[in-house]
Amino acid sequence: MRARPVLLTGVVVAASAISALAAHAGPLCVKERTPFALSDDTVRWTMQIAPGADCIQGLRWSYMQIFNVSVVNGPSRGQLAVVGSGFRYSAENQTPGTDKFTLLISGKNRHDPGTSTLEVEVNPQ
């Protein structure tokens, strides 16, 4: 009979530990996201990010499906990773400066398949 309270306490402690490790949402780093249309178009976004900070940005709009996101040109100063239908950019800590990268997005806009090129300019905050 005493095993249940101990087990419940263990579950609560484990849940607290996991929530402490969870990612915290940072401030919005891409202020104005011009929609892309997956119609062989090119869209430019500007991002502002503090040195040493991360930006996690989704790419999917409610009316489209994203099949693939690939890096065409990677950043020269920070780190970039494709995460599902989005990306994570990590700014370098030392000597902040401007950066840029380009992504190719393929998917379906409503019923029409296509691709878009996204050029992102990164500016220090």
Rank of each mutant, 00 (worst) to 15 (best):
R77K: 12
Q79P: 02
C55R: 10
L7F: 11
I105R: 04
A17D: 00
Q79R: 10
P96E: 03
G52Y: 09
L59P: 12
P27G: 12
E32L: 12
M47P: 12
N109F: 08
I56N: 13
F36N: 04
C55N: 13
F36L: 01
T9G: 15
Q94T: 13
T9R: 10
S62D: 14
S39G: 05
P51R: 11
I105G: 02
R77D: 06
S16Y: 02
S76K: 13
G84Y: 11
M1L: 01
I18M: 12
R44T: 09
S62A: 09
V30S: 15
T115G: 02
K108R: 11
L38M: 02
L28D: 15
S116Y: 00
T95Q: 08
G74L: 07
I18G: 11
D41A: 00
W45C: 06
K100W: 07
T115D: 08
T46Q: 15
S116Q: 01
S106I: 00
K100Y: 10
V71H: 04
P51F: 09
D40Q: 11
P124Q: 05
E119N: 09
T117P: 02
A17Q: 04
R77F: 03
V11S: 00
L118K: 01
G58Q: 11
V11R: 05
L103T: 00
T42M: 01
I56D: 15
A81I: 04
L118S: 00
G78V: 01
I105P: 03
D54R: 13
V71L: 06
L21S: 04
A81H: 08
T117C: 02
A50K: 15
I18Y: 12
A14N: 02
G10R: 01
L59M: 10
S85V: 06
E32R: 15
A20T: 02
A3H: 11
M1S: 09
M47A: 07
W61M: 06
G74Y: 07
P27C: 03
Q79C: 03
T98M: 00
S70L: 08
D112E: 12
L59H: 09
I49C: 09
G97V: 07
V11W: 09
V83C: 11
T102Q: 11
I66E: 03
P27M: 07
P96G: 05
L118M: 02
T98P: 10
A14Y: 05
D54F: 10
N109C: 01
F67G: 15
N93H: 13
L28T: 15
V6A: 07
A25M: 02
V72H: 10
L80I: 05
D54Q: 14
R2T: 12
G26R: 03
N93V: 14
A53H: 14
Y89K: 08
G84K: 05
V71Q: 00
V83E: 15
G86H: 03
A53P: 09
F67Q: 15
V6N: 04
A25K: 10
T9K: 05
D41H: 01
V30M: 13
K100H: 12
S39A: 14
Y89M: 07
V6K: 03
G84E: 08
T117R: 08
G52V: 08
F101S: 04
I66M: 01
V11F: 13
I49E: 11
V69K: 06
E119K: 04
